[in-house]
């Protein structure tokens, strides 16, 4: 009997907690205009929909985008500083059953395999909701080419050196 009382109390507490907890559903899709074979320097856009599936309005919603490199041997979270200026949505209120659509632009800075995910939480709850992840590959684009650098780096000093030589020759010639 004593055990039954404890069980009842626990169930009551749990049900009241569930009644006030936020419930968010996150969807994430790659924009249809995105390149099929993205290369360094391309722009990609990701569209997210965050829906309040709970019965209470959500206040102080925070949603953010994360990028993780999953290139074999280089697995690591990425600092988005130089990839995107649009990194989060903050302070939004979302009524029950309402949705928030967001587009996340991103410039592809480095080659490799990446996974992108949207996360969301709110002011009152400790739960973090996440979207399904999207994975994409960024192809390498050579940005420093010796074919460009060598002629310049060697040619210009040689040109100036040649001018110096001509000056010396002309000076000698004048003397002679």
């Amino acid at each position: 009997m004593k055990h039954f009382k404890y069980l009842l109390t626990s169930l009551l507490l749990l049900s009241s907690s569930l009644a006030t907890a936020a419930s968010l559903q996150l969807q994430l899709q790659s924009d249809t205009a995105n390149p099929t074979h993205p290369t360094m320097g391309d722009w990609m856009h990701f569209n997210s929909v965050i829906t309040n599936t709970g019965q209470q309005p959500i206040e102080g919603l925070v949603a953010w985008i994360s990028l993780v490199e999953v290139t074999p041997g280089k697995e690591q979270p990425m600092d988005l500083e130089d990839w995107s200026a649009h990194k989060a949505v903050t302070g939004t209120t979302l009524q029950s059953d309402a949705s928030l659509q967001t587009q996340w632009p991103m410039r592809l800075i480095q080659s490799g395999d990446y996974r992108v995910v949207i996360s969301a939480t709110d002011r009152n709850n400790k739960t973090v909701f996440t979207s399904p992840t999207l994975q994409f590959h960024v192809a390498q684009k050579p940005v420093v080419e010796s074919a460009r650098i060598l002629p310049v780096a060697l040619g210009i000093p040689l040109l100036i050196g040649g001018l110096l030589g001509v000056q010396k020759f002309r000076r000698r010639h004048k003397t002679g």
Binding site: M40, G41, D82, R107, L108, I109, Q110, S111, Q140, K141, P142, V143, V144, S146, I149, L150, V152, A153, L154, I156, P157, I160, G161, L164
Partner: peptide
């Protein structure tokens, strides 16, 4: 001018060894 271009050339030549720079690195 030769010294000036020498500084710039030395810096540019240092980059040749690294072919896989990110756009950010570039």
């Amino acid at each position: 001018l030769l010294a000036y271009s020498g500084i710039l050339s030395a810096f540019a030549l240092l980059l040749i060894s690294n072919q896989e720079l990110s756009l950010l690195d570039n």
